[in-house]
Design a protein around this nucleic acid. Structure first.
Lengths: 335, 335
DNA sequence: CAGTTACGCGAGAGCGCTCTCACCCGTCAC
DNA sequence: GTGACGGGTGAGAGCGCTCTCGCGTAACTG
């Protein structure tokens, strides 16, 4: 087990078991056409020698790295967003049992070339791209090169690419319905970045559902998903529209920034203003009061991304597919 | 570049350049003893063919995976803690330029075997262990097997292992000095788990510094680093010692739990009671008011961990070493 | 009982790279 | 002019694995 101990190879195991290298390889890889007695002999030899296959050698011939990359935006906004931890956890549940490594990359100047090079050099089998920015050329590049890739949300440009998303529109509607059911009459919303699909769709879903409930043209203030932008947007909202009694904030993180602003303005939550967030991140729990929020099944979605990616790795030219998960409302004390 | 394009090998480049495989290999690996003219010919051949070395093949002979693992606790307390993101970022800054992959693992039932297997199978060159739990056998196991490993904090058991830590004692002292300078006269502390080095050291540093400032025997209540324990400890503290005017809470997360308790008891922060946290996690920012806290230079520490690990990979039996970073005080509104 | 089939195993050829070692040739000393 | 020397190159032997292909044996058919 030490680094210096002579390494056990297939050859060695074969010698101990008195069979050929090929047969040991079959046993190791679970090929069924091996005689039961021989299989047992080999397995005994494997455990007495403490054999473990050298994966570099295997990778050389199978052309599989058994590793995929998870590319995360390195922007500050993600610092403190548990979203990414949940992604990692979800992806891991699928990868771990298969022995596939999860290689983490934060986007930087050269992430694109880096990823492409790794793919070509056989160090990576595929890529999961999380929250790519609007003009990121990487998704298109990967698709064009027919490399296995999955996106964490609907791409901004309509390119043929597999992605997993939550039904953002339905999420917005969920928030609207809850606020209406609570009896809020002057409802507003703090949106996410409107240059991105999630920001757009949450707003659209919310606005349409409000309109259907007889409150068309709700007030909206744009944020950018960060805590600070949530605070700033709320400041503006409460100043310009002091009479709002319910607000849908397109991310928990922004809500976390917004709540102290309400308190400072002497507004009680939920009695004066009801607040509904989005994400059900841990931020929702650390809010005071705990946040009623729209939950995305992030772990499940991440696991699905991993599965979709592995399908592509397994078989080239797997048809493009999109999987949409349904959000749900988690009712706590803020609304 | 496509997955199906015939791959360019050293052989191919050698043919194009009219030299041997060995010479191309020399050029690729920057061996200096190559004639300048030949080097240029080869480099031209490399770029016209679009050659990229197959890293699996290289790994097979060099016995280097060019990948290291970052093992993170999967406990909930890390979810939402930007600490994690900062670690990744710091480690990446060192790894990225060297082309070393960062493989992420969340601790689970079989993490230990997994890591050891990966190390033995040549998929991993070394491991960075972040926040191992008290009785984790993994550090000892790795050390015994002389595998490259670095810990993110002083190990609970005194085993010969390289680690990077912050000067916890100095951090506690920093908090004490700030409270004293603010004019607090009846100071207390909510500690972390006292069975762990950070909990012990922060308390010791705080207590000693208070004593030096003329306030020996400060009141302390033990927590366990969780938000809930922070709330419970504060409840006890405020009940048993209603006259405290300053408190050092050994983690931001506990402080986050404690602040609403103070509010409920009608205490204004910082006017009635000044509060200093520890970590400068995002929790510190989401507190109301934002938390004055002791900051660890996490990115720098993470980068140092990566460097220490690579040293060990580079050269077996590198002497064990510990690197201690100095904390700093981030003053916000709570104290 | 001969001829066919099926099945399980072993031999061996790579996968693409690194690295040792021998060789060649130009330079220098004697 | 011969021998020693040394820098620079190429041949070739692996690294440890997978996988095709062919052969031997056992089972089955007519």
């Amino acid at each position: 087990m030490s680094r210096h101990q002579k390494r056990v190879t297939l050859e060695e195991v074969a010698r101990v078991a008195g069979v050929s290298r090929a047969t040991v390889s079959r046993v190791v890889n679970g090929v069924t056409s091996v005689d039961e007695n021989i299989r047992q002999t080999v397995e005994r030899a494997i455990s007495t020698t403490g054999y473990l296959p050298n994966l570099a050698a295997r990778a050389l011939v199978t052309r599989r790295a058994d590793a995929i990359a998870l590319v995360l935006p390195s922007e500050n906004r993600i610092v403190g967003d548990p979203f990414f931890t949940r992604i990692v956890r979800g992806v891991s549940t699928v990868l771990r049992p298969l022995g596939v490594h999860l290689v983490l990359m934060m986007t930087g100047a050269d992430t694109g070339e880096q990823v492409i090079a790794d793919l070509r050099q056989g160090r990576l089998d595929g890529v999961i791209l999380v929250h790519t920015y609007q003009a990121d050329p990487l998704p298109g590049l990967l698709v064009r090169n027919r490399q296995p890739v999955v996106l964490s949300a609907r791409p901004a440009e309509p390119i043929p690419i597999t992605y997993v998303d939550v039904n953002q529109t339905a999420g917005g509607a969920l928030a609207a319905e809850h606020l209406v059911a609570r009896g809020c009459r002057r409802v507003a919303t703090i949106t996410g970045s409107l240059d991105r699909p999630p920001g757009q769709d949450r707003l659209a879903g919310f606005r349409d559902a409000m309109a259907e409930s007889g409150q068309p043209g709700v007030v909206s203030v744009e944020g950018d998903f960060t805590r600070e932008s949530g605070a700033a947007a709320m400041e503006r909202l409460i100043t310009e529209h002091p009479d709002v009694d319910g607000v849908f904030i397109a991310s928990d993180l922004m809500a976390e920034g917004a709540l102290p602003v309400l308190r400072r303005h002497g507004r009680a939550v939920p009695d004066d203003i009801a607040v509904v967030g989005f994400d059900d991140s841990s931020a929702a729990l650390s809010c005071d009061p705990p946040l009623t929020t729209v939950r995305q099944p992030v772990e499940d979605m991440a696991a699905e991304m991993a599965r979709q990616l592995l399908r592509q790795v397994e078989q080239v030219d797997t048809p493009v597919r999109s999987v949409i998960f349904e959000p749900s409302l988690v009712v706590r004390q803020s609304a």
